[in-house]
Amino acid sequence: MTDEQQREQPSGVWATAVGVARVRALETEREDALFRDPLARAFAAAGGLWPSSPPPGDEAAHRRRLAVSFSIVIRTKFLDDLLEQACASGVRQVVLLGAGMDSRAYRLDWPEGTRLFEVDTAVPLDFKDSVLRQEQAVARCERTTVAVDLREDWPAALAAAGHDPTAPTAWIAEGLLIYLPQDAVELLLTRIGAQSAPGSRMGLTLGSRGVLERFAADAVPGSAASMWVSEMPDDPVHWLAGHGWEATAHTLRDRAAAYGRPITTPPQREEGPGGLISALRR
């Protein structure tokens, strides 16, 4: 039986990772792309999202989809830069939490000796690996997959896979926290902190204030927005300080402008704290 026949088609929360891959594939085709992800199209095609046309919907739904896609592009560039800075500071361990269809192990230029751990449940990791085999993809660093549910004892599974908590780590939680209730977010941050040596870095994406009201309230059942449950705290920098991190918060608008993709429409409400977070463990 071929990999194509064996693949379990995306469903539930992890299906959104294939949708993210489709957005990254579309960005990769732009002449002025902020990043290139040559594997994204293969992930999207394997999940049945390439080629495809946008789902039917009214103009408001179309605008929401464009807004979500735009945020994915900007956050991808933001976290790519964060990882580059972490490596420049000497970090040689990277952990992607809820890795989904992330292909950074294959598309970024990693310093020699970098070890990258992808943490996710077994089904999406198996799906992903079948695509990687089909594409004959070769990782640019030492890549290790850790099949575990983040609601379980993932630090033990990560340690068993070879993660060294005494060495600095770059942690990435991209498009993840918005799907977790607040108590699960707090537990995740506590566990990350316990595995983070001084000099560790962390990149987070947080649901902006009001995002549930604007996007999730009338979301189509089964869509990504219908599964969103949490927003950022009123003061994310103070919140992360309580977890032992020195954080900087950026808005999507300010990062988009910095990357040459300015948002030209005025904000619908007063700009609050940013949902793109970089943090350092002293």
Results as ranks from 00 to 15, higher is better:
Asp183His: 11
Glu231Met: 04
Val23Phe: 03
Pro181Asp: 12
Gln6Asp: 14
Ala137Cys: 02
Ala241Gly: 10
Ser196Gln: 11
Glu271Asn: 08
Gln6Ile: 13
Leu34Lys: 06
Val138Ala: 15
Met232Phe: 11
Asp126Leu: 15
Leu206Trp: 03
Ala224Gly: 15
Tyr259Glu: 08
Gly12Ser: 06
Thr16Met: 09
Asp234Gln: 10
Arg115Ala: 09
Asp234Arg: 09
Glu31Val: 13
Gly98Pro: 04
Pro233Ser: 02
Pro54Glu: 13
Val18Gln: 04
Pro38Lys: 06
Leu180Asn: 03
Gln134Tyr: 07
Gly90Glu: 10
Arg107Ile: 03
Ala256Pro: 10
Arg24Ser: 01
Glu142Gln: 13
Gln134Met: 06
Arg133Phe: 03
Ala184Arg: 13
Arg107Ser: 01
Ile172Gly: 00
Ile178Cys: 10
Leu26Arg: 12
Met232Leu: 15
Pro273Cys: 11
Thr76Arg: 01
Trp245Ile: 04
Thr205Gly: 09
Arg282Asn: 15
Ser11Ile: 08
Ala137Asn: 01
Val229Lys: 07
Ser278Lys: 06
Met227Asp: 04
Gly90Cys: 11
Val68Gly: 14
Glu29Lys: 02
Asp218Pro: 03
Tyr106Val: 02
Arg104Thr: 00
Gly90Pro: 07
Ala161Tyr: 13
Glu29Ser: 06
Ala160Ser: 07
Pro267His: 08
Val146Ser: 07
Asp81Cys: 13
Trp228Val: 11
Gly210Arg: 08
Gly162Ser: 05
Gly203His: 11
Ile72Tyr: 11
Thr265Gln: 14
Arg151Gln: 08
Ala219His: 00
Ala173Cys: 13
Arg63Ile: 07
Asp32His: 12
Ala159Trp: 12
Pro266Lys: 10
Gly242Ile: 01
Gly274Pro: 00
Gly12Asn: 01
Gln182Gly: 10
Phe117Pro: 03
